[in-house]
């Protein structure tokens, strides 16, 4: 397949030239803007041979391609979000041409403006809470009285109760951490805990949450998260950010 299509990264409040000079996109071509209806769409040209619907299905299975595309997409969104309120668009959203992008700004302009108003002056912070795997498990009590069978069952019961109690305690800690951080945030989005094979962390991920935090609250938010991580035993708190507001740039029904 020959020809090109238009890849959409984000929509920014505009038109205030939110794209730095020399910025290139997912396929190495310059990042451009489509300014329409008081909004600025951030786009670049991509080859249909790579980004057409059929080609894309294969490409998305290719982890090297996926990583390169995701990082290039992210780099464009970060560059724009530094200078303007930005609603990032989901990975690989592709149009036939710029006229269709302008049509989108007409059709969905109201909803996009609402999303932009929600995220303006805010950044997204990711907070993961892990159960600390280095925490030693309680010593089993020695088997003393009764038949070996009874003693064995008694010990198994004790271990089970201990594990249940520990799990309840971790859940309570996680809830308290969340409540404290949510009080400093404008909005909260819960992501699924990541598979340990992907998180690269030996502990069990208890929660994986995104918080939308006002720029002026950021220092207080990260300080609170670090302080909670240090103060609560048995858990580890990992903070990542600031992110562009990916988890909060969602369109509400008109």
């Amino acid at each position: 397949m020959t020809g090109t299509a238009v890849y959409l990264y984000a929509v920014a409040c505009g038109p205030d030239r939110p794209v730095p000079e020399g910025l290139t996109g997912v396929s190495g071509t310059p990042v451009l803007t489509v300014e329409h209806a008081g909004l600025t769409a951030i786009v670049s040209s991509v080859p249909l041979a790579e980004y057409g619907a059929d080609a894309l299905r294969d490409k998305l299975d290719d982890l090297v391609w996926l990583e390169r595309t995701a990082r290039a997409h992210h780099a464009v969104v970060v560059a724009v979000a530094q200078v303007a309120a930005t609603a990032p668009v989901r990975l690989t959203t592709i149009f036939h041409d710029c006229r269709q992008v302008a049509g989108l700004l007409d059709d969905r302009g109201g909803q996009i403006r609402q999303a932009l108003a929600r995220v303006a002056g805010h950044a997204e912070w990711g907070v993961k809470v892990y159960g600390d795997s280095r925490r030693p498990s309680p010593e089993p009590e020695p088997i003393t009285a009764g038949s070996p069978g009874t003693a064995y069952l008694r010990q198994r019961n004790r271990q089970r109760r201990g594990a249940e109690q520990a799990a309840r305690q971790l859940a309570a800690h996680t809830g308290r951490i969340h409540d404290t951080l949510a009080a400093r945030a404008t909005a909260v989005h819960t992501h699924r805990p990541q598979d340990p094979r992907l998180s690269g962390h030996s502990g069990i991920m208890l929660s994986n949450t995104a918080y939308l935090v006002a720029d002026r609250e950021c220092a207080g938010f990260t300080a609170a998260a670090e302080q909670l991580g240090a103060a609560v035993t048995g858990v580890e708190v990992e903070v990542a950010g600031p992110w562009p507001a990916y988890s909060f740039a969602t369109l509400q029904d008109p």
């Binding site: 299509a5 959409l8 929509v11 980004y51 057409g52 619907a53 894309l56 995701a70 997409h73 992210h74 609603a87 990032p88 668009v89 989901r90 990975l91 690989t92 959203t93 592709i94 149009f95 036939h96 269709q100 992008v101 049509g103 989108l104 059709d107 969905r108 996009i112 999303a115 997204e124 989005h189 992501h191 995104a210 992110w243 990916y246 988890s247 909060f248 740039a249 969602t250 369109l251």
Partner: peptide, 17 residues
């Protein structure tokens, strides 16, 4: 974030998402 977040657009205008 990129696969579960962000503005989701659909309709005839769009080739793929």
């Amino acid at each position: 974030r990129l696969l579960a977040g962000g503005v989701v657009l659909s309709g005839d205008l769009i080739i793929s998402i």
